[in-house]
Amino acid sequence: MKIGLLVNEGPYQHQAADSAYRFACAALAKGHEIFRVFFYHDGVNNGTRLMTPPQDDRHIQQRWSELARTHGVDLVLCVAAAQRRGICDPDEAKRNAKDADNIAPGFRISGLGQLVEAAIECDRLVTFGD
C-alpha cells in the first residue's frame, strides 16, 4: 500500500518525529511504500544538517537521511514553513541572500502542494504532531 506521512513537530521537542520514523520503518519492513514524508510547521526542523545531538542520543536528521538513501523515501520540507524557521537549501539561500544553507542530505524543499498531492496519491495519510 502507498502511505504518506505528515510530521508536524520538530525533533527532540516532541515524540512525533520518532513515532513517524518508527512507523515508516515498520511500514517499509512490511513491504509498503512510503510515498513521501512531508514536514510541516516546526517539523521542518527535522531537515537541518546542523543539528548536533549528544553522542549517546539518536540523530534524528541522520536517521531520516539514511531512510532516503536506503529506501528512496521522498523527504519534503514545506517551503513557507522552512523559510519562516530558517531552513534553506542552496537555491533558497541564494535567492534570499543568506550566507549559508542548512538542508540535510535526502531532504528537499517544496510547496504545500506536495502535501495535498501526497494525500490524493496515497492510499493513506498518517499524521504525527502535537
Binding site: 508536524n8 510541516y40 510547521h41 513557507a80 514553513a81 504545500l112 502542494g113 502535501l115 495535498v116 490524493i120
Partner: peptide, 19 residues
C-alpha cells in the same frame, strides 16, 4: 500556536487540486 494559520495555508493551496 501557528497551526490555525499554517492550516489555512494548506486549504488555500489545496483548492488548486479540485477535490
Amino acid at each position: 500556536t501557528v497551526y490555525a494559520q499554517e492550516g489555512l495555508e494548506v486549504v488555500l493551496i489545496g483548492a488548486a487540486f479540485d477535490q
